[in-house]
Design a protein around this nucleic acid. Sequence first.
RNA 1: GUCCCGGUGGUGGAAUCGGUAGACACAGCGGACUUAAAAUCCGCAGACCUCGGUCGUGCGGGUUCAAAUCCCGCCCGGGACACCA
Length: 894
Amino acid sequence: MPRYNPQSIEPKWQKVWLDQKTFRTPGLDTLDRSKPKAYILDMFPYPSGAGLHVGHPEGYTATDIVSRYKRMRGFNVLHPMGWDAFGLPAEQYALRTGTHPSITTKTNVDTFRRQIQSLGLSYDWDREVDTTDPSYYRWTQWIFSKLYETWYDPAIRKGRPISQLEIPSGVLAQGDKAVAEFVGSKRLAYTAEVSVNWCEAMKAVLANEEVTGEGRSVEGNHPVVKRPLKQWMLRIPLYAERLIEDLELVDWPDAIKEMQRNWIGKSHGAEVDFQVCGSSDKIRVYTTRPDTLFGATYMVLAPEHALVAQITTPAQLAEVKAYQEQAARKSDLERTDLAKGKSGVWTGAKAVNPVNGEQIPVWISDYVLATYGTGAIMAVPAHDSRDWEFAKTFDLPIIRVLDGGKPDECWEEDGPHINSSNGEISLDGLGLTDAVEKITAFLAAKGAGEPKVNYRLRDWLFSRQRYWGEPFPLIHWEDGTISLVHDSELPVRLPEMERFEPSGTGESPLANATDWLNVTDPVTGKKGRRETNTMPQWAGSCWYYIRYIDPRNAQTLIDNELAKYWLPVDLYVGGAEHAVLHLLYSRFWHKVLFDLGVVEHAEPFHKLYNQGMILAFAYEDARKATVQSSLVEERDGGWFHKETGEKLNQIVAKMSKTLGNVVTPDEVVASHGADAMRLYLMFMGPLDRAKPWQSNGIEGVHRFLSRVWRLLVDEDAENLVLKPLANTESVELERLRHQTILKVQEDIEGMRFNTAISQLMVYVNGLFEALPATPGAAAGVPGVAAETLVQLLSPFAPHLADELWSLLGRSSTLAYHPWPVGEPSKAEEDSVEIALQVNGKLRDNAKVSKSATKEELLALAKANAKVQKFLEGQVIVKEIVVPGKIVNIVAKPA
RNA sequence: GUCCCGGUGGUGGAAUCGGUAGACACAGCGGACUUAAAAUCCGCAGACCUCGGUCGUGCGGGUUCAAAUCCCGCCCGGGACACCA
């Protein structure tokens, strides 16, 4: 009767773990800090209305296995879960349904928590955080206050309190307003009228990182246009250098590090001044190829460049103005579309090339970006493809200064310089590196330029005109000053509002919360208005890993001692889609907090691991049109359309409603149990690889768990009882046991869960084989084997393991039971099978003693009949013996 | 266009300090048990042929006694970036 029944044992153990707080991590008072620690973190989810999908449990299971394993190895483990619950989708859903986002958020969180708990994950639920909880966002606001009150000191490469900023006497002399302006120009958080990415469909501003290369929103793929708005910005580029350097300190996938480096986009070059003819104005350009300066035949300014108005000649004014207006109206998409040709207008002005005195025309064009470098370039058409295209379009002169490539093609590679000399300097004959060095020194000496490092990374646009986000702790006073809400008055709560639609004007919905909006200074009677923008969703997720360590601390963000002990996060698992956004922002905030002494480590996440996406099979017909999975049947080793009978191809695709191939965790838990689901997710393949869900696969692991159950439990008995266990273990089983312990622990440490599980299967197969042929015969599975198997299985299938553990007569959970000891000496085989080769081809195998010498192996090979057959009529040329592996005899015809 | 990752049986995948390719599973085939089915257990299983071999890790070369593994050149799939001067 008592068959393996996950539906009854899983809820039972989940209740025990929850009720007894089995996975509670001690707080400061009871924490034994002499023990090693493991902070194992999942990227917390956005609790959407759709509930958990199978991708979530993949990463969660992996971290859960590591957490459970580390506990058994005697580590203090911190393994928390929480909710990234602010954000646009909740607000949009609320607007559609008329339900307040705080209500839908609560419902969704409850669903997510129930689903996650049904997977048996060993989270400490006492540490749950929710970014929308005022007691949480109080500290998000606090961190913003710190950003506002911090400036970056380039001399010591650190963020410092604004109180330590020295005000130049010249600024002091100009009065309070000038001082405020000066300080504002140094704060890490500042407000500015900027051209922003405005998404009409979302009625909100987006950060650069939230806009795709096609000029559409990452969320929802809506069109995005440029529009000037007053916004809060964060000066993340000041930390660019450290954000690049400190990638050396962390153990992250190379691909992610590379993406961050690319995003920060450091480049070395020089700034060069060009004198405008007939004017005192100079145009400063940034170039990474100062060595090509002799080939500069014209210049281009961004249409928004400040000098355009001053240098444009009256004759060109109308045309220039028209072009500027046209450019301003274009979206980034239209401006950067590579398919379109180059456009531009001559300003009428000329400037002097500082190395050869040539007067060259100054153009404006939208292919030059106002926001990068100086917003102006020197154009070297012979050696830059963009300049080449522009010069060809407008018939501008092209001078080659590098020897290489075909005569009528642009050459962007290295080569000996030509046509590059004047009376004072010559680059002719030099290669790229030498030429750059020489010309840069020359320009510096003449005061016409200097070496310069540039970053692609821009200031982070940090405000949104939405309701469902953290309010800024700021007040705009009637006298034009801005002040922070005092720490003691935090949090600034998000007001309860009935209507919170975005206005569409760029004004946040909070502007309508009249009672909340207006404030009066109790001391001076001065009137003010709260900041009505809210923070972007990234704000809450930037620092949640810190709060988990000390989640209920009402006095400070985090206790210093706890921060010292638990940080950094030892293992951080999540999807690769956060490669630049969340992970870059988080590192930036962490560095600011590091500079302020809140945390003691330069980097927040030591080891990062990206789980691959769970895909699913889908079907398409000969025209490559996809077919709903419900209309597909499998027969005769192929797939066919149920209605038309057409033969279909199996493909791998993302799970989607349209393909009808979505699998939800709830249905898998219901049909096969959480343990089977966990095991299958890990058995599918390497964690970091994308792989398709196969319903047959889950059957397979379920069968394995049933086999384990049957190995130990007497299914014929009326009640739940163990089969009789044997007292002694054969030499072979002992060896297999030690091999299994060692393999499983190595594989868990290396995050190779699929091969750990196969080893467990090998062990179970071995135990079955060793059972007496006749059922009921005296000895069953050796007791030590039974206990070890259950222990090794427990990180993977914790419900089954705890159930069997209690059947084995142990009263408490396995969660903190010491991991079994695997001894390499006992795992070693005493004989090995080696390959006998002739000329590199396998001819026979031989079982030999592990200690056999080279001579013995060679003699054995030569005595082998099959080997001899292939040596007939041959002369031996060479003999290679690798003990424990192969003997290879090289021979050639006599 | 540039960068990164990958390509192994019918399927998911093992094996990379170069040393017996295909562990473990899924699907398949055969057998046992059963009135029958399910479940379970045992066995077979890369391809090709003359049953002793030959070929075989996307394709073509190379290094080596020996290559899935290292090198060169391609092809295909996935991801990221893309007028950043």
